[in-house]
Simulated assay, not measured.
Amino acid sequence: MEEKKLAFIGAGNMSRSLISGLIQSGYPAHLIMATNRSADKLEQLAADFGIHTSQDNRQATDWAQAIVLAVKPQMMASMLADLQAQHAQLKDKLLISIAAGISVTRLQEMTGQERIIRTMPNTPSLLGLGMTGLYARAHIAQSDRDYAEHMMQAVGKALWVSDEDSINHIISAAGSAPAYFFLFMEAMATQAIQSGFSEQDARLLVQQTALGAANMVVANPDTTLGELRAQVTSKGGTTAEAIRHFQEQGLEQLVADAMTAAVTRARELETQL
C-alpha cells in the first residue's frame, strides 16, 4: 500500500478501527494523525498506536496528503465550512469520506475539491471483519482508488460500485445489515428464554449458531445459500417445518421491503445533508 501522510478528521470508533487495521498491516504510525475535540480520545489513540494527534483540524489537513472525513454526517458541513474559513490546504489532496448520506456532489460543494472517494464501511470493521462499499467518479486516478481500497481491506472486505446510488444499496445490504441479524438473533434468544433457558445460555446458543452458520458460508464459496439451507433441511423434519412457517409468513418479502426502505431513507438523507 502506498504510504501517504494520512489524517483522520474525527476519531470515533470507525476511525479507531481503521487506524488499528492500518497499523497492524504495517502502515507507519508516524504517517497517521487523528483529530478530535476530546483530548482523552486522542491521548488513548496516541498511547495505543503511537500516531500523531491534534485538536486542530486545520493542522491535520495542512499536514496530510490524504484525509479521511470521519465526523458525524450532521456535523460535516460546519466542520468543512470552518476549514474553508481558515483557508485550510485541501487542494490536490485525496479526500475519503466514511460519512453516510453525503453524496460526492455535496462533498464537492462543501470542499471545493473533486478528488473525492466515498465509502460505506460497517460496524464489524471494528473487529477486522468489515464490509465496505466504495465509489469514485471516473476521473479519480487508479492510484487513489487503490489507496482507498487497501485502507478498507485493512479492516475487512471491500467492494467497488460503478454508480453512486449503489452505495445506498450497499447500506441496505451491508451498512445497516448487522442490525438485521442482531434483531433476528434477539428474537431467537427471547424465544429460547421463554422456553426455559437462562439469558446467558440463550445467548450462547444463538451466537454460536450464528457464528457457525456464517463460517459455513465462508468455507463453502461454491455452494449457494439456498443449497446450504437445503443441506440442513430434512424433508418432513423440524427445520423444514420452521422454514415453511417463515416462508408462509412472507419472510422473503419482508426482508426485501425492509432493504428497500433502507435505500429510500438513504436517498432522503442525501437531500438533507
Results as ranks from 00 to 15, higher is better:
Ser38Asp: 08
Met1Trp: 06
Leu90Tyr: 05
Ala179Leu: 08
Met33Val: 15
Lys72Ala: 02
Met131Tyr: 08
Gly112Pro: 04
Ser172Gly: 11
Leu211Cys: 08
Glu241Lys: 12
Ser78Ala: 14
Gln86Tyr: 03
Arg16Tyr: 13
Arg118Ser: 12
Tyr180Thr: 02
Ala213His: 10
Val232Pro: 03
Thr264Gly: 13
Ala258Ile: 03
Ile9His: 00
Gln89Trp: 09
Leu80His: 01
Ala242His: 09
His169Asn: 13
Arg229Ile: 10
Leu42Asp: 00
Leu107Val: 04
Thr239Ala: 01
Ile167Pro: 08
Ile170Met: 12
Gln207His: 13
Leu42Tyr: 05
His139Gln: 14
Asn13Ser: 15
Ser25Met: 06
Lys5Cys: 06
Asn168His: 15
Asp62Asn: 10
Ser103Asn: 04
Thr105Pro: 04
Gly50Leu: 02
Val71Ser: 02
Ser103Thr: 13
Ala29Met: 05
Pro121Glu: 03
His87Pro: 07
Gln108Gly: 07
Leu228Arg: 05
Asn36His: 12
Ile116Trp: 05
Thr61His: 03
Asp40Ile: 12
Leu225Gln: 10
Thr105Arg: 13
Asn122Phe: 04
Arg145Tyr: 03
Arg16Leu: 07
Pro73Val: 06
Thr209Tyr: 11
Leu45Gly: 05
Gly212Lys: 08
Ile96Lys: 01
Thr260Gln: 13
Ala70Glu: 04
Lys157Phe: 13
Tyr27Asp: 00
